[in-house]
Nucleic acid binder design. Sequence first.
RNA 1: GUGGCAUUAGCUCAGUUGGUUAGAGCGCCGGAUUGUGGAUCCGGAGGUCGUGGGUUCGAAGCCCAUAUGCCACCCCA
Length: 438
Amino acid sequence: MNKISVKPISGFPENLPMRQQIECEMIDTIRSQYELFGFQPIETPAVERMDVLTAKGGMGRQIYTVGKPEGTESKTAMGLHFDLTVPLARYVACHANDLTFPFRRYQIQKVWRGERAQRGRFREFYQCDIDVVGRQNLDDVYDAEIPAIISSVFEAIGVSEHIIHVSDRRIWRDVAKAFGWSPEMSGLVLQELDKSQRDGLDTALSRMTAQGVEDRVTAFVRDMVSAEDFAGVRQVFESSDVALDGLRVLENTIATAVLLGCSPDKIHYDLTIARGLDYYTGTVFETFIPGREEWGSVCSGGRYDDLSEYFSKEKFPGVGVSIGLSRLLNLLVDSGMIDGTPRSATTVLVTVLEKEHWRRYLELARDLRNAGIATIVYLEDAGLGKQLGYASDLGIPYAIIAGGNEWSAGCVKIKDLNQRTEDKVACSEVVSYIAARR
RNA sequence: GUGGCAUUAGCUCAGUUGGUUAGAGCGCCGGAUUGUGGAUCCGGAGGUCGUGGGUUCGAAGCCCAUAUGCCACCCCA
């Protein structure tokens, strides 16, 4: 008889316990960092109405559609959310009267995208979002706060090597205006520019030329992107009569981010950052791990002033970013950049040598748990070697060993599985011994 | 969604121009070691070669279909 396949569907990852443990810890860390910066948690349904999801275009055919239960008719088209920003816009419009603005919220949930899976690219994955949403207005300073927070979060999860690339769509808006570009032309230039990170600027520029972009445009783009610093970019702009508004905003955003605590070497302007999502209107962010640029961005976002326009008559401008946790975690562990060795939330395994004394083993475990020390008792019938192997497989650092010799002496042996050392400890001291070393 | 490559043990893969009972390493289980784990040695289990057709005296290897996977593109966390 053919057994049903037990492999999960491609792009829908599932972890072994060790990796899940790491993921849980990482989520905890991110959550507490977000709360440290004063963000409130919310969750929105995995399923949204299709008109909500597609209100701002963007994700094309990447949305997983959802049907009603078999046999019932579905009048409303529904789909799984592909990010947490669009649902946020709906949420804010829906609950505006009960929220306090500026509304700072974080949201850690799975999202779904109907793409082909690849290494570091999933169809189901976690996003960890923060956003600040204002009512009518939202000061530019919030744009600058984002990189400061993100940098601090990355530090906290042990990824001190990271760099946040920042650009501003208003710059390209100004450029397009000055050159009289059609929307198609703007799209083409930005799209090619985005790929210049991967393929190099020359390749990108020649592809623009091949698609009919004028030489004066490619020349300007080359000068603009390859300028050494802001002063250089400004010069390029002035000599071409392009408005400087967007550029000023970007320069100011970066300077303010540094003031707010983002290390200057963790943030820099990068005019090639385009971002595919349609709803961004100003600042845009992408975060890379130096030396691992091929992983793509592990944390992206930006400013969106008009996202709620389809949901409300009011304006709810916002700015935020999303950490692609699943991508980040798997790439970090696979590449050995963070510790992927067995670890366990359990601290102690109580081994059992003499079943007739079960009660003592169980009491020991109870005392440890009452002291907040995660403990399990080995309940199978097995030799000591196998019991220790069990602890070591699970990454449990301490084993308690006790039999006739120990009971009569009123003590137990506590073995450190990592150090391979062993101490005799009086029964009354066991809890404090472990607590001191945890 | 488009294209390229792949699919043999739980995992990573060998398998020579189609030719008898399909192999290795790792992992797993057991033993040496019934109160001490990651090392070593010995033994063992586990595969109708993705699935369905076809060609052939004979197919893991060739042909067709299909499914799945990987990579690249598109796009994105």
